[in-house]
Write a protein that binds this DNA or RNA. Structure first.
Lengths: 121, 121
DNA sequence: TATTATAATTAGAATAATTCTAAAATCAAG
DNA sequence: CTTGATTTTAGAATTATTCTAATTATAATA
């Protein structure tokens, strides 16, 4: 685990935001002014390949990175705002239906956030 | 509903693939040789905004478009191959926990497809 | 039908996110 | 120290998607 990898992992684990690579890069730069974007992308990819972080693909915005503890996401269909929520774990149910071998799952729930529900339009 | 919009919608509804904008563009070009990529993107976006198609964001590949009937996706963590599966509808459960106002949800289940399970590596 | 307004399409440039390449720097082991 | 492997760097390249402005098609109206 390299110097940068460790710090990137910490940033993700200590933040409650769902940061993009760019945002992580800017945070990391505060303590490591010499670091470069490609390094952040490289490290994010290897951390992700090793199951140490989650990667969230949300339509219309760059990938976001998240902690691995089990939780789901509530996403505003209009403005894209993303928040955490913990629906109960359905891995057991899934395995009953699909058999063993499930690595993980992503559950994204779409709604209109209070703000967007206001401006009905 | 314009000429192109209708054909794009039909392509998606009649195909079992999960096509990217590019693939849809190539298909459409067979019957409409003059059509242009931007038109496909425009139409895909308006169809999606009107809830007539689904858009799938999968890490590492361009967005894919899908029919709207309720079903979930099984995705190979290694090669990204995506297939359909119908786990039971959990909207009711979700609403019980989160209250009304849920528009939809995406459930993506990650596993290793038979091919990738072979080459354990 | 001619006229106007509205919306859709086009071509191509622009943007934004991410990956790639090759060189330089760092690290780890013998 | 030397060697080899890995990581980082700088910057170019790629890819998907959006934007812009001009053009064309469609629909609505006089």
């Amino acid at each position: 685990m390299t110097r940068y990898a460790k710090q990137i992992l910490d940033l993700i684990n200590q933040s409650d935001r769902h940061m993009t690579a760019e945002q992580i890069f800017l945070e990391l730069k505060k303590s490591e002014p010499k670091v470069v974007q490609a390094t952040v992308y490289n490290n994010l990819n290897t951390l992700w390949e090793n199951g140490m972080i989650r990667k969230l693909s949300v339509t219309g915005s760059p990938d976001r990175y998240d902690k691995v503890y089990r939780h789901d996401h509530l996403i505003c269909k209009k403005c894209g705002t993303l928040s955490d929520i913990a629906f109960h774990d359905i891995t057991g149910d899934l395995e009953k239906q699909l058999g063993e071998g499930i690595i993980s799952y992503d559950l994204n729930i779409f709604y209109l956030c209070p703000k967007c529900r206001g401006k009905s339009e």
